[in-house]
Every structure is written in C-alpha cells, then in structure tokens.
Amino acid sequence: MLKKQYLPIIVTVALFMVMFVAGAFRYTGFFSLQVLLNLLIDNAFLLIVAIGMTFVIISGGIDLSVGSMIALTTMVSASLIQNVGWSPWVVIPLVLMIGATFGCAMGALIHYFNIQPFIVTLAGMFLARGLCYVISINTITINNTFYMSMAQTKIHLPGGNFISISVLIALVAVAIGIYVAHYTRFGRNVYALGGSEQSAVLMGLPVARTKILVYTLSGFCSALSGVVFTFYMLSGYGLHANGLELDAIAAVVIGGTLLTGGVGYIAGTFFGVMIQGVIQTIISFEGTLSSWWTKIVIGLLLFSFIVFQRIFTTRRSSRRG
C-alpha cells in the first residue's frame, strides 16, 4: 500500500527518525520520551500556526501575517487582562475572533480584488505588527492566575514524563486539522482549489467561500497560536514571534506540501515542525554548535525539498503534456 503520492511525507518522517536516532547515538540522555515531548512543548505554538499555513499553501496561497498576528494576540490579551482587567474567559474568545476576522478580511481582498496573496498578507503583517505598538511599545507581563496556571500545569504521563496544556491544544488542533483536510468538503475543496482554480470553478465548487475561509482559518490558527504563545511567554510584546511566518512556511514545505498548491498533508506538517525542533535540540545538545546553524540547516532542507518538489512536478507535467 505504499503509494507514490505519499513519497514526500515518507521522506519527511524518515528524515525525522534518522535525525532523532542519530541524536540518540551521539548524545547521552537524548533518547528519552521527555526529549521527544519537549519538542512538542517548545513548538506547540509553531505547530498550531503551521496547520493554518498548510491549508493556505495547499490552496495555492501564502500567509505572511501569521507571526504578527501572534504578536497582536499576545498584546491584546495582555493589555485586556492586565490593564483593563477582563476575564480570560472573555479575552480568549475575543482574540480568536479578532484573528478569524482579520484573516477573513485578507481572504476577501485576495479573492474579490484579485490581488496577490503575498502582497495582501504582507500588508496584514505590517498592520498587525503596527497595531501591537499602538497598544504599547513595551512588554506587558501577565500575572493573571488563569494564565499562570495554564503555563505551569504539567500533565503527568506514566513513566515520570509530562506535557503542558499547550501541547494538548496543539495535538487536538492537529487532529482536527487532519479531519478537516481529509474528511470534510471544505478540506477537499481546498485541495481542488490548489490543484486548479479554473477546474474548481467549472466543477461548480464554491471557490470564493473556500478561498476566504482558508485565510479565515489561518487567521484563527494564528490567534490560537498566539493564545498558546501567551501561556508560554506570559507576556504581550510587539516583537514576539518575529519572523515566525518563515518557520511556519519552512515547516510546511519540509512536511511535504507543494508550495505551488494542491498537494500536502497536515501530518507532514507535524513532522516538519518536529524536524525543526530536533535540529534545535541537537544543536543545543552539541553545545559547540551555535543557534544560527538551525537557520542554515533549515535553509538547506528547504532548498532540497523545493528542488525535490520541482523534479517531482516536472516529471508529472511532462507526462501530461
């Protein structure tokens, strides 16, 4: 049952395992469940945002605004809770709604005015980042008890290991993402849209609705990721998650999603995020290697995956034509 279309994702999973095993052989204390779980704990927010990004990229678009949206979410949450004194039960739904609305507006601009997603989400990126500073240019530290408890609660697993609540949220998001992508009409329409927008129109699929919803979903995911990021950092700051959109895009591509749209898996993105995590972990275990190697290695991986995709798709189109 090993099918050719699963090749990219198999490569990704294999790469992750090779890296993890290599790390295990090289460093003592690397091969433990907790190291694996820490990958999740440290990358929960990236995982959530990458799910939204996967949908956007599969639909043939791109969303550069996600990093700024996270920052805006942390900022709005922090200021409403610390300065205005609202309850988290009001604040969290509110910021999620802001994210979704923001994405929806960008999707509408992209669809109705036929402007490149790159440009629209670039404007969104500027806007969200700028709005953070309108709220405040300083860090707002959160000492709300709910947020503190969300940050500090450890969910213990058998064997003395633990995860955080954010990990639970991220895993649920992954599960929902897989379900939506694979088992709902919306999910399948996203794939169709990325495969050929013209065909999607002629087959009578709701192209406008799907396109706008995709960006709405991505906006929602970045806001949710922002909430988790707030738990993680316990502060709101305009510089939070700077450049995170690149990490998210890299994770999606390394996860086997075609940047030209139409092909991709949420599960692949999961492993794309984990690979980034493993690279960071290995580098921190190595000690002598510095953090910038992460970027170089991710760049190299991006390059190989993009070239790999290119060969994959040219062979396909040559067969068609």
Binding site: H182, Y183, T184, R185, R188, N189, Y191, A192, G194, G195, S196, Q198, S199, A200, L202, M203, G204, L205, G262, V263, R316, R320
Partner: peptide, 26 residues
C-alpha cells in the same frame, strides 16, 4: 478540466461526496 492532484474517484465525486454526519465516506 479536472484537478490533476486529486484521486480519480475524488475527481468524479468532488462537490457531491457521499457523507454521513458531514464526514466524507471514502
């Protein structure tokens, strides 16, 4: 005018997939 990236079966049924409780029956 079909979607080259989708499976043959899906190309035939997309937009009118048989579902149960909103879940597509592959």
């Amino acid at each position: 005018n079909l979607c080259p990236n989708l499976s043959v079966a899906e190309n035939i049924f997309i937009g009118r997939e048989p579902r149960r409780y909103g879940r597509i029956l592959w």
